[in-house]
């Protein structure tokens, strides 16, 4: 079956800064894919290219079978984006935000859709309050709920849990798992290794403009030099794998 996302040799520079130097990645339909990278590694840049907000300088990216550069309208019909910074309308209430997005997605039952999502995200009590009065976790929930309006088969979450407290973080994780259980493909970026470990079917690590490693967690763990013989056998965490690989690259 065709992959939900197929990226080959993706390049992007901002003036002098060469951010993406040939990124290759594939995301299987129905899976959760985590793109891992430190601050400024280019995660958001990749998300913006895949969601048609930004044009690449080189390489080819296909989303749901449509080339992002040639068929951006088709891509937009089949995706949904929750950007790194909450894109909610603070002057509107939570309900009005959802109804607005439902109208823009041309759904006929926009108030029903809004009600269902408010319920699902535990925002019913706050539904008729201005979003500017929401806490960070509530904003993020509303932001993600807005992205679920219309039920896109592929959803992008750019650092969905950055800045959330542990409880809110676990809530977002639960939601992501539910989404995937219902067949939605999820592309998420994160700086947290444990988040990728928790959620993702496949993980790719972006470093200095390239994907330096990708695979299932089990495969990544194999890349690590076999566990040292100590009194207690210690499994390598993804963090150690990450640091080991970066360390190796930098030595070369």
């Amino acid at each position: 079956m065709q992959n939900a996302i197929q990226v080959k040799g993706l390049q992007k520079s901002y003036k002098q800064l060469h951010v993406l130097k040939g990124v290759d990645l594939e995301v299987e339909r129905g899976s959760i894919f985590a793109l891992l990278g430190s601050n400024g590694s280019g995660k958001t840049t990749i998300v913006e290219i895949l969601t048609t907000l930004l044009k690449q300088d080189g390489g080819k990216a296909t989303v749901n079978g449509f080339d992002v550069a040639l068929k951006p309208d088709n891509v937009r019909q089949s995706i949904s984006l929750t950007g790194q910074f909450a894109a909610i309308d603070e002057i509107l209430t939570g309900r009005e935000n959802l109804v607005m997005i439902a109208r823009l997605r041309h759904l006929s039952n926009s108030s029903q859709v809004a009600n269902d999502l408010l319920q699902r995200f535990g925002l019913t009590d706050a539904a008729d309050r201005k979003a500017s009065t929401y806490s960070g976790g509530m904003r993020r929930r509303l932001d993600i709920a807005m992205s679920l309006v219309g039920g896109s088969p592929l959803i992008f979450l750019d650092e969905p849990t950055t800045g959330l407290d542990p409880e809110a973080r676990i809530e977002v994780w639960k939601m992501v798992k539910e989404l995937a259980a219902n067949g939605t493909t999820v592309f998420l970026t994160t700086q947290y290794l444990d988040e990728a470990e928790q959620l993702a079917d496949r993980i790719a690590i972006l470093h200095e403009g390239r994907i330096i490693v990708s695979g299932a967690l089990a495969e990544l763990k194999k890349l690590f030099p076999s566990a040292k013989i100590e009194y207690i056998e210690k499994q390598p965490t993804l963090e150690e794998i990450f640091l080991a690989i970066i360390g190796k690259k930098e030595k070369n």
């Binding site: 937009r76 950007g83 997005i101």
Partner: peptide
């Protein structure tokens, strides 16, 4: 506030 960004990623 990024709301244009959301609109621009929608059809």
């Amino acid at each position: 506030r990024g709301i244009f960004e959301r609109f621009n990623s929608m059809p």
